[in-house]
Computed example of a mutant assay.
Amino acid sequence: MAFYDLSKSERAERVLAIKGDIRDGLLSHNLQKAHLFYSDDDTYIRKSAYLVTGRLYSEDVNLRPAILAMLFKFMSDPDFKVRQTVINAAGEIGKWDFEGVRSYFDEGLKDPHHSPRNAVIGSIKKMGEINPAPVLAWAREYLHHEDKEIRREICHGIELRGRKYPEDILPLLAELQHDRTARVRDTLVHVIGQIAYKKGCLPTVLANLKGWENRLLVDAALEEIIDVHHRYRNFTALTQAEAIALIDAHFPDRKRKSG
């Protein structure tokens, strides 16, 4: 039976059982059941597995070496679902102990399958929101990587931190303003739009954009901000008209989109 076919109480019991099985496996050095959870076809079973791995790491100092050994072993598994779950588990740990798991994100960025790479993006988002200093320092190392997909993934990954603290990620985003690849630039414009509509963020974003050199990209970002304030009008801190007025105050000579 699929995880969400269970009742709420049955799901809670299932999670406790998964936690107990993983803990027992770590203590007995028998990772067969843990591997079954990490490779399960049900996304929510895998999610439960990586969440309880993070909790076990937090709750029991004595289990940490065994947990790291398990993640190291599973990271080379031929099943992409296992590698994806490893990275998500590392993301839970990295919310407060990034240095202990940073190697999994280095490896995950190079994974041949998109699912582990997407897990890196998701992990950067959740870690960067809670433990920004080491995560953003690590992310900066990849901003000019030769692989355009890695640059794009890093840009996307730091977005969530910017929704509350745009000043933390805008200097990193600025380093991508001259990127050679349209796909990276498009992601950059998207991320600027996503952080600009949150409460209190637009003035900070606009003040920062005034210092950018790539005016064509800035113009594209301004149009995206305007469009986002229409598309997400039920969720934006400002109306589209208020956003346009603020943009015009910062960029009185901006190029306006025709039509």
Results as ranks from 00 to 15, higher is better:
76 S>I: 07
223 E>W: 15
76 S>R: 07
239 T>D: 09
147 D>H: 08
139 A>E: 02
178 H>N: 06
134 P>L: 11
73 K>L: 10
114 H>F: 14
215 R>G: 11
252 P>H: 03
222 L>T: 07
64 R>S: 03
47 K>R: 15
252 P>A: 08
8 K>V: 12
172 L>C: 01
46 R>N: 10
56 L>M: 07
190 H>T: 12
17 A>D: 10
189 V>F: 06
169 I>S: 00
5 D>G: 07
96 W>G: 05
48 S>P: 10
71 L>G: 04
7 S>V: 01
176 L>A: 02
192 I>F: 08
49 A>E: 05
69 A>N: 15
15 V>L: 05
176 L>R: 01
184 V>M: 00
106 D>P: 05
10 E>K: 11
251 F>G: 02
256 R>C: 13
160 L>D: 12
87 I>F: 01
143 L>M: 14
14 R>H: 07
28 S>N: 06
50 Y>F: 15
195 I>P: 01
162 G>S: 06
85 T>A: 02
168 D>H: 13
225 I>P: 09
40 D>F: 04
142 Y>V: 01
158 I>Q: 04
211 G>P: 11
171 P>F: 01
58 S>R: 14
139 A>I: 03
106 D>N: 13
121 I>D: 13
38 Y>A: 11
194 Q>M: 13
135 V>W: 12
101 V>Q: 00
222 L>H: 08
69 A>P: 11
43 T>Y: 13
109 L>I: 06
139 A>L: 05
203 P>E: 08
170 L>Q: 01
86 V>D: 00
252 P>W: 00
176 L>I: 03
30 N>D: 14
61 V>C: 13
257 K>W: 12
47 K>E: 14
243 A>V: 02
66 A>R: 13
75 M>P: 00
14 R>A: 14
114 H>P: 11
16 L>Y: 04
245 A>M: 05
109 L>T: 03
69 A>I: 08
63 L>V: 07
250 H>M: 00
129 E>W: 15
68 L>N: 08
162 G>T: 06
219 D>A: 15
116 P>I: 04
158 I>C: 09
17 A>I: 02
34 A>I: 00
104 Y>L: 11
174 A>E: 03
176 L>K: 02
70 M>R: 09
257 K>L: 15
234 N>I: 07
206 L>V: 02
121 I>K: 13
178 H>A: 01
221 A>G: 12
5 D>T: 05
233 R>Y: 08
42 D>I: 07
253 D>S: 09
198 K>P: 04
81 K>Y: 04
135 V>I: 15
90 A>F: 03
231 R>E: 12
256 R>G: 06
151 R>Y: 02
137 A>K: 14
192 I>H: 00
86 V>H: 01
142 Y>H: 10
175 E>S: 00
149 E>N: 14
1 M>Q: 06
31 L>Q: 03
193 G>M: 02
250 H>Q: 07
8 K>S: 10
50 Y>W: 14
238 L>H: 11
132 P>D: 05
9 S>G: 03
78 P>Y: 06
